[in-house]
Simulated scan of single mutants.
Amino acid sequence: MRAIVFEEPGKLALTELPDPTPGPKEVVIEVAAVGICGTDTHVFDGEFEGTVFPLIPGHEASGTVVAVGSDVTKFAVGDHVAVNPSTTCGECEFCLNGKGNLCREWNGLGVVASDGAAAQYLKAPVGNVYKLRPETDLHQAALIEPLACAIRGYDILPRKMGEHYLVYGSGTMGLLMAQLAPRAGAASVTIVDLNEKRLEAAREVGIQNVLGSANDADRDQWDVVIDCTGVIRAIEDGLPRVKAGGTFQHFGVAPAEAKANYSPFRVYRDELNIVGTMAVLNTFGRAVEMFEAGAIKSQPMISHAFALDDYSEALDMFRKGTGRKLQIRPNATESVVL
C-alpha cells in the first residue's frame, strides 16, 4: 500500500509498505478519508508528547472493512465504519478507575506509537471500530472522531441551562464545540477568529455571533470560554473574559512546552474553573449516534480533499489557515476543492 510516513520530526515521505494483515481481534479498513488537524502538525514538528518515529499519521478516519481477524464476529467485509484512534494499557490506575484517556501509556493511532490512517489501509483493534449506517456519507463521517473529542469536552464542563459561551477558533473543533453549545443549554454562542473565511464557515453552520475579536462583542464576560486554538495569545485573551464563578476550558492543543500568563489572584477571587480535556472517553459511540442524528452540519466544514501525493501541500495549507476542514483521501487519484 501507499502511505505517508513521518520519518522524523520535520521530515515526511510517501512510501510503499506491505498491506496490513489483521490479527485475531483486528480489522483492516480501506480508508475513505482522514482529516488533518492541529495534532498532526504538532506530531510532525516533534512537539507532541511521546511520539515515536517513524509513524504513519492520521487519526480522524472512516472507511470500509476489507478484512477481519479470526475472532472478529461483529464486523464483515463491506461494512462502513469510523475508527476511535485511542488505545490504553487497560491496567494502570487511570484505566482501572474509568479514566482511560489519562492513561500514562495512552496511544493514539497516528499520534504516538501506532500507525494511523494516512495510508490506503488501516489496521485497528476491533474494539476501536464502530459500524455506520450504509447510507452515512463516509467522507463526512471522518468528522466523527473530532466530534467524539468535542463531546468529551462537554462531559467535563459544569454545564447549566441559560449560560453564555465564547469559543476561540473557527476551525474544526471550534465549529463543533459551538454547534454543540445550544444542545448543552447555552443561551448564546459567540465564536472568535482572525480568519474571515473560517468565520464564514461559522455563519454557514448556524453560529449566532461571529466576530473577529471578543472586544467587538456586546458583553464583556461569559459563563464559559473555550479555547480551541492552542494559541497562547488567544488563551491569554480569553481567560480574563470568564465571568466570576465561570469556566475556562483548554481544548486546543498547544505545544507541550508552551507557557501562558494569567492572574492567580483572579482565579482565586472569582472562583474560576480551569479545565482541560483529553481525547475521548466513552464518547465515540455517542458521537456516531449524534452524527447520524444530524447534530452537526458537517458538509460546510470540509473544503478540500487531497490525494496522498499532495499531503505536504495539505499540511502547508493547514498551517496557513487556508480552507476549512482539510482531508486526505488515500485511495483517491487526485485532489479536489469541494
Rank of each mutant, 00 (worst) to 15 (best):
Leu96Trp: 03
Val5Trp: 08
Asp40Cys: 07
Ala307Ile: 03
Phe6Lys: 01
Thr229Asp: 00
Val126His: 06
Tyr165Phe: 15
Val112Gly: 00
Ala307Leu: 04
Met317Cys: 10
Ala295Tyr: 09
Glu236Lys: 01
Tyr130His: 12
Tyr311Asp: 02
Ala113Arg: 15
Gly108Pro: 11
Leu326Asp: 06
Gly100Lys: 11
Gly23His: 09
Gly110Pro: 10
Ile226Trp: 01
Pro20Gly: 05
Glu271Ser: 13
Glu196Cys: 03
Ala150Glu: 03
Ala314Leu: 02
Met1Arg: 04
Ser213Asp: 14
Tyr121Gln: 14
Val224Ala: 02
Lys320Leu: 09
Ala187Tyr: 06
Tyr154Asp: 09
Phe75Lys: 12
Ile151His: 03
Lys243Tyr: 03
Gln249Lys: 01
Gly323Leu: 10
Lys243Gly: 03
Thr51Lys: 06
Gly108Met: 14
Phe265Val: 12
Glu93Phe: 15
Asp193His: 02
Asn97Tyr: 06
Ile302His: 13
Ala150His: 03
Val111Glu: 10
Ala201Ser: 13
Glu163Phe: 00
Val68Ala: 13
Ala260Val: 13
Thr39Met: 04
Ala61His: 00
Gly98Val: 11
Gly78Leu: 14
Met301Ser: 08
Ala178Asp: 05
Gln208Leu: 09
Gly323Thr: 08
Val167Trp: 01
Asp71Leu: 06
Tyr121Phe: 14
Glu196Arg: 13
Thr39Pro: 09
Tyr165Gln: 00
Asp115Val: 02
Ser86Thr: 08
Leu194Arg: 14
Ala32Arg: 14
Phe284Thr: 07
Ala307Pro: 06
Phe251Val: 04
Gly46Trp: 11
Leu176Trp: 11
Gly153Pro: 08
Gly38Gln: 12
Gln221Trp: 01
Asp227Cys: 04
His42Ala: 07
Thr64Asp: 02
Cys103Met: 10
Ala332Gly: 05
Phe284Gly: 11
Asp270Ile: 02
Val210Ala: 06
Met290Asp: 14
Trp222Phe: 15
Ala234Pro: 00
Thr322Trp: 09
Gly285His: 09
Ala307Lys: 13
Met290Trp: 14
Leu175Ser: 07
Val280Asn: 07
Asp79Gly: 08
Ala141Trp: 01
Glu289Val: 10
Gly127Ile: 07
Gly276Trp: 07
Glu257Ala: 15
Ala256Gln: 14
Gly50Phe: 04
Lys197His: 13
Ala118Thr: 01
Glu105Lys: 15
Glu49Ile: 14
Val267Pro: 00
Ala295Thr: 13
Gly10Val: 05
Ile56Met: 06
Gly153Lys: 04
Asp115Cys: 00
Gln179Ser: 08
Phe44Gln: 08
Ala307Ser: 12
Val280Arg: 12
Ala181Pro: 12
Met161Leu: 10
Glu91Ala: 13
Thr136Asn: 11
Lys74Tyr: 01
Gly238Ile: 06
